[in-house]
Design a protein around this nucleic acid. Sequence first.
DNA 1: AATATTTAAGATAAATTTGTCCTAAATAAA
DNA 2: TTTATTTAGGACAAATTTATCTTAAATATT
Lengths: 144, 144
Amino acid sequence: MFSKACEHGIKAIIYIATQSLQGQRAKIGDVAINSGSPGAFTAKVLGTLTKYNIVNSYTGPTGGFDMSVKQMRQIRMSDIVKIIDGDNIYNGCGLGLSECNESKPCPMHDKFSKVRAGIKDMLTKTTVYDLAKGLHEGKTVLIR
Amino acid sequence: MFSKACEHGIKAIIYIATQSLQGQRAKIGDVAINSGSPGAFTAKVLGTLTKYNIVNSYTGPTGGFDMSVKQMRQIRMSDIVKIIDGDNIYNGCGLGLSECNESKPCPMHDKFSKVRAGIKDMLTKTTVYDLAKGLHEGKTVLIR
DNA sequence: AATATTTAAGATAAATTTGTCCTAAATAAA
DNA sequence: TTTATTTAGGACAAATTTATCTTAAATATT
C-alpha cells in the first residue's frame, strides 16, 4: 500500500508529534529507536518533509525535529503520503495503465475507483494530531 | 497497490478469459501484445497461476492458455491477488508493523482496517467473468 | 520418427527501492 | 573562538522487484 519510505516517514512524524506535545524536540536517533525505523533512511524522508514544512528541523546541540500543534492539526495524512509516494494511490490505475478513466476504463476501473476514493477520504480526514493523540495516550504503538 | 507481477497477471487472465469466451486458446505472445505486458515476465506469473488451477496451460502447437467458463465464474480477483502478492493487502499493517491488531494497534489501525476490508470485499465480490465480460463487450480496455 | 511450436523453468540482467556511510554545514554552549 | 552535537546531503551498498534470455520438456502435425 505505502512504500517503506512512507511507512517510516509516517511513524517518524507521529513520534515527533507526540514528543512535541510534551515540549520536546526529537533527535533522529530517538526517532529511529522509538519508531522502529532505520535512522539514516528515515532522516532522508524527514529531510523531504522538512522541505515541505510538514515538520521543522534544527541543527546543532539541542537540535532535532518538532511540530507545532497548529501543524499537527492542519497536516493530514494525505499530505504526507502524497509528498512521499506521489498521488498514484489517489489517481493511478489499478492495473497500471498510463491513463484510465470513465470514458476509457480498464476492467477494474469502476470498482477500483470507489476503493481509491475510500482511501483518499480516510487519509484526508485524518490529521497528524488525530494519530499522535492515540499514541500519546498509550492507546496505540509504533513498534511490535 | 498491486505489484507489477500482479497487474500483469490480472490483465493476462482477463485477456485469456475473453479469448476463451470465443473458444480460443491464447499464446503467451498474444497475451503480451493484447494485455500490454512483458511476455516472459507474464509467462512466469501465468506459470504460478497455472499451478493453482486459475488458468490452464497446454504445450506444443495449438497450445497456449485458456479458462473454462466455470473457472471464470468461480475464481475471484481476491484469489489471484492472494496467490501473486500474498495476503498482506488483506491483513498487513498499514505502517508495516510485524503484528497489528485491535488489542495492540498501530496509530492507523482502526481507520486502515476499514479501508482494507473495503478492498477485500471488492476483490472478493469480483470474478474473472465479471471483468472479462466488460472487455469482451468492448466497454473496457487493457492497453492505453 | 522427425519437425515445428508452445509452455516450463532456471540463470542472468536491469531497474528500483531500501538502507548505510561519510563529510559538510549549522549552531548551542563552554 | 573552540568544541561538541545535530541535521543536510551526496556517494555508495544491499535487497528486492521487474524483466530478459536460454535451454528443456511436452505435444500436435507431417
